[in-house]
């Protein structure tokens, strides 16, 4: 596979904080074929993946649903035992020394909060303090820092059930960082968040990585997360590593398109404007595709000047689209 960088399965370096060597995860899946009959099938959720991540790197781990992202994260955190290959995080075999590793990693599951639903946010942090045996001074310092940067001050005494999704996510991220983990795994950290919350989360992660040197591995469906955070991207599909390298190398992203959805006052012929092309018309609503690298502002200004606008919105390119394009190009080349 020519997309994979040649150096991805080199021998272990002292600085390779995360190290995977031909790691596999095979599941036996039972599929119902009748009322009582079922069929056993082997599914390679992760199929011989090798990569290393040095300390302090921020890596995006992307791929379509069911590609094997979560399975990889679960193996890295010690939740799942690999079926084959060699895996080390900070020199520890996660599946064998799960609890020892737990002290050194932080995990945020995007859709599952680990905070205590009925209790004020601060209570969850106090539990972390004691469960992870965080020295008091460290705890106080880390909490202060998280509270300040994630703007949690006003929320500490609010029961978690009353927090918005974005507030809860910020709360979860803080909870995962109080024990100074060397690596932070984030599974869809911005899913379901509004634009402002997304921006806050991203800014915080960037600072964390820059100031503390915390290694960050994140899975996401949002390409903007990757663009704004990660120097390096890994694309996984069908359990295989399809691409591993800098973001710029994933040139398909540069060629991907965003969509501008325009609601006009009435039905009109397709909008004719530079850089964008109409891909769909439905009554007064029109969809225009434009290069993802372009700013939407001048485009919007031009349309607003020439057409009777009611409303508009921009849709980001999604990862599925980028990956399918990747395949399409490979097939034609």
């Amino acid at each position: 596979m020519d997309l994979i960088h040649a150096d991805s399965h080199a021998e272990v370096h002292a600085d390779d904080f995360i190290h995977l060597d031909r790691v596999e995860k095979v599941f036996d899946v039972r599929k119902k074929t009748g009322f009582l009959r079922s069929e056993r099938r082997e599914v390679r959720a992760v199929d011989s993946i090798s990569f290393t991540v040095p300390r302090g790197e921020m890596v995006g781990y992307i791929g379509p649903n069911g590609a094997g992202k979560s399975t990889t994260i679960k193996m890295l955190t010690g939740i799942l035992t690999p079926s084959g290959g060699r895996l080390r995080v900070a020199g520890i075999d996660p599946s064998r020394e799960r609890t020892r590793l737990a002290h050194r990693i932080g995990v945020v599951f995007g859709q599952r909060t680990t905070l205590w639903w009925d209790l004020p946010l601060i209570d969850s942090y106090r539990l972390m303090h004691r469960m992870y045996r965080i020295p008091d001074a460290r705890y106080a310092e880390n909490l202060d820092r998280c509270v300040e940067l994630l703007e949690l001050g006003a929320l500490l005494d609010v029961p978690v059930r009353q927090l918005s999704l974005g507030q809860r996510m910020r709360g979860d991220i803080a909870a995962a960082l109080l024990h100074d983990p060397e690596v932070l795994y984030l599974d869809e950290p911005t899913i379901g968040l509004d634009v402002i919350s997304k921006a806050k989360v991203r800014e915080f992660l960037r600072d964390l990585n820059a100031e503390r040197g915390t290694t960050v591995l994140l899975t996401t469906h949002d390409l903007t997360d990757i663009e704004q955070l990660c120097q390096r991207v890994m694309v996984i599909d069908h359990g295989r590593l399809m691409y591993d390298g800098p973001l710029t190398g994933l040139h398909e992203i540069g060629e991907s398109e965003r969509t501008l959805v325009v609601d006009l006052e009435r039905e009109l012929p397709p909008i004719d404007v530079e850089l964008a092309r109409v891909v769909k018309v439905e009554g007064p609503r029109q969809w225009l595709a434009f290069p993802a690298a372009e700013s939407a502002a001048p485009l919007v200004a031009r349309i607003a000047a020439e057409y009777p606008l009611v409303d508009l919105s921009v849709r980001e390119p999604d990862i599925e689209a980028v990956i399918s394009r990747m395949y399409a190009e490979k097939a034609t080349s």
Binding site: G78, I79, T99, A102, I105, R112
Partner: peptide, 13 residues
């Protein structure tokens, strides 16, 4: 519901 996973990443049995 997958919440067992959140227990498995904690430093406790």
């Amino acid at each position: 519901d997958g919440t067992l996973d959140t227990l498995l990443v904690r430093p406790a049995p």
